[in-house]
């Protein structure tokens, strides 16, 4: 089966800084892929290139049959980028809920404004997803009344309500108090179980080990290891992976 996400020869420069070097990854449908690595390794940039929050310098991105070459400009390119964004949902480290909208309004905003869905249908869909993350009872609250964990769960519901083919998680638990991490990871597990294709940039090794089908290790803008979690965590091949896993092991306990 053709991969649902295909990243080919991706290069990204920030000014003179070379942050992604010839990165190529295929992700199969329903696969959960965790991307780990030290900060500055390029893992977030890779994720943000997939929905063009960062425009790649070279290479191409293909999501669910829509292929976008980088380095191209113009209307056609913008349309392709837009199509890719409709296929992907993103969850940010800092939640980025819209503070001037209630929880429900946050979740229906995308379907209504972007897809032109009618309000009743969007609301129905939104309520299903809010129920899915266990926060339907908060639908009329404003984000400032929610805990960090609740905000992130709403953010997940907001992304899911766009009915994407692929979900991108950019360090979804890094801004959370330790006791709130679990609730978000549980919701993510549930999303994975429901068959969503997920790319997760994370520092949560436990989550990677338990939920991921595959783990990518990034260092210095390159993928240094790409393996099943069991293999990776029990016998890491690259010394940088070893160091990374060791660091978390000692850090966590």
């Amino acid at each position: 089966m053709a991969p649902i996400v295909r990243i080919s020869n991706l290069e990204k420069y920030f000014g003179r800084l070379h942050v992604l070097k010839q990165v190529s990854v295929d992700v199969a449908a329903r696969e959960v892929l965790c991307i780990i690595g030290r900060s500055g390794s390029g893992k977030s940039t890779l994720l943000r290139c997939i929905n063009f929050l960062e425009e790649p310098s070279f290479g191409s991105i293909e999501v669910d049959g829509i292929k976008v070459d980088s380095g191209v400009k113009g209307k056609e390119h913008r349309q392709l980028v837009h199509d890719v964004r409709l296929k992907t949902g993103m969850v940010f480290q800092e939640f980025n809920l819209f503070p001037h909208m209630s929880v429900l309004e946050n979740v229906i905003e995308g379907p209504i404004t972007v897809k032109g869905m009618d309000r009743a249908k969007a609301t129905e869909l939104a309520e299903q997803n809010l129920d899915g993350v266990g926060l339907l009872f908060k639908k009329d609250e404003y984000p400032n009344r929610l805990s960090g964990g609740q905000k992130q769960r709403v953010a997940i519901a907001r992304a899911l309500t766009m009915e994407p083919k692929v979900m991108l998680f950019d360090e979804p638990t890094s801004a959370l108090d330790p006791e709130l991490i679990g609730e978000v990871l549980n919701v993510m597990k549930k999303v994975a179980k429901d068959g969503m294709t997920m790319l997760v940039v994370t520092h949560e090794m436990g989550f990677a080990r338990e939920v991921a089908d595959r783990v990518l290790v990034m260092a210095d803008g390159e993928i240094v290891e790409d393996a099943k979690p069991d293999a990776l965590f029990s016998s890491p091949k690259d010394p940088r992976t070893k160091a990374l896993i060791e660091r978390y092991r000692t850090g966590a306990n």
Partner: peptide, 24 residues
């Protein structure tokens, strides 16, 4: 982050301005 969240949802620059940035 607000702009990025809007863009990630697929909003155009104008929609992002009108719905997300301007009200705030």
């Amino acid at each position: 982050g607000q702009r990025e969240a809007a863009i990630a949802l697929g909003m155009t620059p104008w929609q992002t301005m009108k719905r997300i940035v301007l009200p705030q």
